[in-house]
Design a protein around this nucleic acid. Structure first.
Lengths: 134, 134
DNA sequence: ACAAAATTGATAATCATTCCTGGTTTTGTC
DNA sequence: GACAAAACCAGGAATGATTATCAATTTTGT
């Protein structure tokens, strides 16, 4: 029972299922392409609409790394992300390591701090290997 | 002497000067509007082109927080950012507090880690005040 | 002063995302 | 099950940020 009223639709279910069954962090058009395999005439607008609904209901996460593209993540466990500066791939980082002091940020800025996001940038193992092969 | 060859232009100088003389984190069209005050027929394409050049030369920073809009920051000192979830304003956070273990991230992901970015989200002092006034 | 190279303004093109509309599906109630 | 209201859909048009194109201009090194 979500406190936001909504109806069931196979399109919505499908999109959530797609996101939960992949470990990558796809954008809307990748999800659209996947969805078409099952519902060939699903529309891109429907994909965007349902992605927004799922975010609103807290069932998926949105992440906007660099490039301006919006990516989606079906993994709700709290974790951070790392992006390869060569191939642009995004991977997960378990966020166990980082101590970030909300109260000190609040003191320094006057904000009431609610959440934070950490992104790392570097070179992924595959691209490291490739660069060494040259 | 930048290792990237470029010519001087008053448009480029102006854009850098605008970014350095503000403490806000503007987007391209705000910079465009400011630039027009001095060079009325400067074009938006020129603004985008020079922003890219300045980033490439490491003279300004690009930051893409949530909403999909690209913001620019003329402050090169290393610092983090915080965004108000109500009014979308972005402020600086001196990054003194946060211990982020690159080597542990490298172990966990296999990446060679180069940099990181931290963004905070919350409510700015003004919006807190407004919400309490109601 | 001059030619080569980079930059500009203006405008067209691109791309992700949102909006709109008339038709369809789901839901709660009888 | 039938029915009306509400939410949803497909398709396509509209929007808005950013990039590409191109002839004309400006800068640079010689």
């Amino acid at each position: 029972m979500d406190d936001i009223k909504s109806k069931n639709s196979k399109q919505n279910d499908l999109i959530l299922r797609i996101l939960r069954s992949t470990r990558c962090h796809p954008n809307a058009s990748w999800i659209f392409a996947e969805a078409r395999k099952e519902i060939p005439n699903i529309s891109l607008g429907t994909v965007y609409r349902n992605l927004k609904n799922l975010i609103r209901k807290g069932k998926i996460q949105e992440l906007s790394i660099g490039n301006g593209l919006t990516l989606y993540d079906g993994d709700l466990r709290s974790h951070d992300h790392i992006q390869c500066m060569v191939c642009s791939k995004v991977d997960d980082v378990p966020h166990l390591f980082h101590s970030v002091a909300f109260n000190q940020v609040e003191e320094a800025t006057g904000y009431e701090v609610v959440s934070r996001r950490i992104e790392f940038f570097g070179t992924c193992p595959e691209c490291v290997k490739k660069s060494k092969a040259i």
